[in-house]
Every structure is written in C-alpha cells, then in structure tokens.
C-alpha cells in the first residue's frame, strides 16, 4: 500500500491529467527562485516531448529543451554546449 501511495505521489508527465506535475513544479520554482528551466527528455519519449511547448507557454521563464538518446558521447558534448550557452544567456 505504501509503495502504491508513493507511486501515485510521483508527479510524472505521463499521468492523465498531469496537472500535478505543474503544481509540483510551481512550488519548486518558487522555493528555489529558479531563473530558467532545463527540460531534458529522451528523443522518443512522447509523453515528455509533448510537454515542452506547454511548459514554455506556462512557466514564464527561459526554457532550454534538451533531447538526447541518453548514452552517447556526442549527445553529452552537445548537451554540455547548449547548457553552457543557456547559462550565459541567464547571466
């Protein structure tokens, strides 16, 4: 039962509706004073990929959308470059 309750407390993008994800994120953004959002998703993950545009509309902060296959060197280097550029933009 505890495992089930813990599972249902995860604010995942794949929940329907997934409004809890946005409620959770709103709290976290306020708590941390975040100035931007890095949105990472795996290339073929439709559930997360579909959230990127909605998040950009909703969040009111700069958003960096990063996709990757999760395990290649080229993907890592590309992501590092893009994150550095994003950080520079925020400064």
């Amino acid at each position: 039962m505890e495992l089930a309750e813990a599972y249902f407390s995860i604010p995942d993008a794949s929940r329907r509706p997934n409004s809890e994800l946005y409620e959770w994120l709103k709290v976290k953004l306020m708590e941390t004073g975040a100035r931007g959002v890095v949105f990472h998703h795996y290339v073929w993950c439709d559930a997360w990929r579909a959230e990127l545009a909605r998040l950009k509309e909703w969040v009111g902060l700069p958003v960096l959308g990063l996709d990757s296959d999760g395990h290649s060197e080229t993907s890592l280097a590309r992501s590092q470059n893009r994150i550095r550029a994003f950080l520079e933009m925020l400064q």
Binding site: S14, R16, P17, N18, A47, A50, E51, R54
Partner: peptide
C-alpha cells in the same frame, strides 16, 4: 497509444476538459 495520450494531454492543456478513463 502513447502518441495519442500525449497529444490529448496537450489538448487538455489548451483548456479542453477531458474525462480520462484507464
């Protein structure tokens, strides 16, 4: 279909209420 689920959620996010059933 996960594609459909994702885009239906997008539709929901645009303000169309949806009764989801699993």
């Amino acid at each position: 279909c996960d594609d459909f689920s994702a885009l239906a959620q997008r539709l929901n996010g645009l303000g169309h209420p949806i009764l989801w059933w699993e």
